[in-house]
Amino acid sequence: MIGAAVSRTLGSRGLPWVAGLWLVVLALSPLYGDNYIVKIATFVALYGVLALSWNFIGGYAGYPSFATGAFVGLGAYAGAICQNAGVPMIVAWLLAAIIVAGVAAAMGPVILRLRGHYFAIGSISLVEIGSVLASNWSGLTGGGEGLNVRFLPGGPDFIARFFLYAMLVILVAALATTIAVDRGRLGFGLRCIAQNEDAAEMVGVPSTRYKIAAFVLSGVFCGAAGAAYASWVGYIAPADAFSILLTVKVPVMVLLGGAGSVLGPLIGSAALVLLEETVWARFLDYHQAILGAIIVALIFFLPGGLLGLRLRWRS
């Protein structure tokens, strides 16, 4: 109701302001909350990055990718290994983003030949491959023992704020890219591919190139976010870095908010993280069951995501 009313008054032109306002709310969290609240805000920003990333391939191009966990894990390991080799932290994050983009560009032509369920399975296997590589390539990754990342010195307040703003910078970059894609040729082409790939090809959309571009975009910010996360926690291990849970959670967030739009991923990621947090804090014993029920209900009753509320109100 309220969401619908808000968007009715704002109209579609007002929506970017909602995004801006949301960024401000997150950025100001150190002023109104303790470090735990700041940590949640950081996680909201982190998941915002991942959801916006997934939106390129899953939302615009309509390819159900489950590679998010692989990109995050690869970014975490790439960043950690670079940092331990003496590369300054921020440079290591950038390198991680470049490495992940490179891997996505190399893997894209292979797995983007698959469509629908086959593509989903192909992309989820990347997570598993990453995990197996990380646990068996002991010389480079420390294997099952995991990898220590240089511990950034500083008090808890400084660390909390530093990583909040680091995640927000990555989030702004992902958001700006989304807006550019949404309004540009690439976004148009990807929407055509999502509707009918063969038809798109016929009217001159270079579908292979566009799909690879979307896949790379869906990886690059995840890589940076993964590397930043590794520096934040100070330790990574294969099973937690290459997380199947994460790879499934991010598409749920985007579907929750509304796929193939600028705001949907932001709304969905914020809604799911905050929902998880509230449900978890209130119902210690049954939180997972309750969360599952809420997700099922949302998907049943809001197939277009939370943004779809607005459309329904209008019609």
């Binding site: 511990f151 330790y235 099973a239």
Partner: peptide, 12 residues
Amino acid sequence: GHTKVVAGVAER
């Protein structure tokens, strides 16, 4: 691994 993560937060 979870011990290391918790200890990392507590250390700060």
